[in-house]
């Protein structure tokens, strides 16, 4: 008797789970907060990892002065290898973080008399995890969305490959899988999935590492040139750095409010 009742509850629970997380039957009506409620009502519980890092709003400060070409290359290489970003050459390339130069990263903020150092410095470009992200606004399926801690995530399971987010992103931070990436990944990192043909991808602030209590990979290999922390916490390393230095953000006039700051 007991056994069968338990079983019944289980069935009811899973139906509710199915309902809650966008399984087709009733996904039409569901929204984020309801999902969680439904899941909880069903007795399924989910937790953050105890060791995972949390913040009110994650931010990044890149000290362009401390990054040379080698370091930039190493950062890119590390990021791409742990995220299984394929090494495709040409105009259909994919990149999450990459060194460009000042006049391209800050196209409207340059001037003819910019310092020699800045002119040559490899400036790292990546997703800005904007506070007010146009890419999230334009996505027709919420495949790209903003987490509470400010990270702009890609849900590869949901992306339909319409590339509206790429048109919407004012920073060229997004890449599209024009082809099967698998043959172009030199060494597969088993800790992170790669992608299928036809979805968009970009920097995720190493969400998977934060969940394990680790800093983003670029921060880790940057030897202190990239700081990462909670912008909401006045005592965080990033806030301290922002207080101590002159920083700029990309295309401030667009109102996107990037979470990536550059010390120049």
């Amino acid at each position: 008797m007991k056994e069968s009742r338990r079983k019944f509850l289980k069935i009811a629970g899973v139906s509710a789970i199915g309902i809650g997380t966008g399984s087709v039957l009733t996904a039409f009506a569901s929204s984020g907060s309801k999902e969680e409620k439904a899941a909880q009502a069903a007795g399924a519980r989910f937790k953050h990892r105890a060791e995972s890092l949390k913040a009110g709003h994650w931010g990044m400060v890149i000290d362009t002065r401390k990054i040379d070409a080698d370091l930039a290359a190493k950062i890119q290489e590390t990021c791409h290898s742990i995220h299984n970003v394929p090494g495709i050459e040409g105009k259909q390339e994919l990149k999450w973080i990459w060194p460009s130069d000042y006049k391209h990263v800050f196209p409207m903020q340059t001037n003819p008399y910019v310092s020699e150092q800045l002119k040559k410095a490899p400036i790292l470009a990546l997703c800005n995890h904007c506070e007010n992200p146009p890419c999230v606004r334009v996505c027709p399926t919420k495949a790209t969305f903003q987490r509470e801690d400010g990270i702009i995530m890609m849900d590869f399971h949901r992306c339909i490959g319409c590339r509206f987010c790429m048109a919407g992103c004012p920073y060229g931070a997004r890449s599209f899988n024009f082809r099967d990436p698998k043959p172009f990944i030199k060494e597969m990192d088993p800790m992170y999935p790669h992608r299928m043909i036809g979805v968009v991808e970009k920097c995720n602030f190493c969400d998977e590492r934060l969940a394990r209590g680790q800093m983003p990979a670029c921060v880790e290999v940057s030897k202190g040139a990239i700081l990462f922390g909670d912008l909401d916490d006045p005592d965080s390393n990033v806030r301290k750095a922002l207080r101590a230095n002159t920083t700029i953000r990309r295309k401030p006039s667009l109102g996107t409010s990037p979470s990536v700051y550059y010390i120049v």
């Binding site: 949901r158 992306c159 339909i160 319409c162 043909i197 036809g198 979805v199």
Partner: peptide, 11 residues
């Protein structure tokens, strides 16, 4: 134009 047409119902 869709990269993943089989998911078009997601819209």
């Amino acid at each position: 134009d869709m990269g993943f047409p089989s998911r078009l119902m997601n819209v």
